[in-house]
Design a protein around this nucleic acid. Sequence first.
DNA 1: CAGAATCCTTTTGGATACTG
DNA 2: CAGTATCCAAAAGGATTCTG
Lengths: 127, 127
Amino acid sequence: METNIMDPNCPSRLVFQRIGDKWATLVIQVLEPGPMRFSDLRAKVAVVTPKVLTQTLRTLERDGLLTRTVFAQVPPRVDYQLTELGASLLPALKTLRTWAEQNVGRMAAAQDEYDAAIEDAVLSAAH
Amino acid sequence: METNIMDPNCPSRLVFQRIGDKWATLVIQVLEPGPMRFSDLRAKVAVVTPKVLTQTLRTLERDGLLTRTVFAQVPPRVDYQLTELGASLLPALKTLRTWAEQNVGRMAAAQDEYDAAIEDAVLSAAH
DNA sequence: CAGAATCCTTTTGGATACTG
DNA sequence: CAGTATCCAAAAGGATTCTG
């Protein structure tokens, strides 16, 4: 069967949505080297609140991209690690990052130019 | 200089954000074959409202990913087409789509499994 | 035709405080 | 330590109506 990206129910939409998630791709990339516990993730992913980090992790766990392992000890310890499926996404993310690193300068320049043109238009309209 | 994805100001964040935009990647991929006018885009991208489509197009234009060309005629005609920069993003998107098409089935299965486990937990808690 | 303007609902992200 | 519970502000997304 043909996957049609135009279809609102197209499965690839799900993936693009996940990629766009502010924290999801970050978490996946942080987990690349190996398992990590909640507090370490918080430290690594900077100023994310526990609530948002939990949300992100639950979503990724539900997607089968990572696993959550609880150790029965006090104080509690919970490890998160990429599944094979999650790890298989890394190359695609890497491709995107590479593009980003190489082209964000051009994007930023385009934005500056665009904004300057708008500014000019506003000023001349007010003449 | 080292780009650090952990940095909230990291430029690659901008790219991931754009990729995650519900309509942006769709528009870029629809424009691959060549220029297209507003109404054709609307038809292609299904049920998007003109407001949202306009927003998306403006953002992409500002990013330097596409150009907007107005023809001085009645009725009006406006063409949108990818810039070289916009087109250079296509391979990376293609990589993602390929991953999506190959793995969305596994993601969906993982979700079903996860939801079923949750459901079981709820039922047994109510025993 | 290609949108702009307005209004409204839903979702998202985050701050803060509390708990097993 | 690893979360959960509440509350809130901001933004995204969309329906509808109008216009050069």
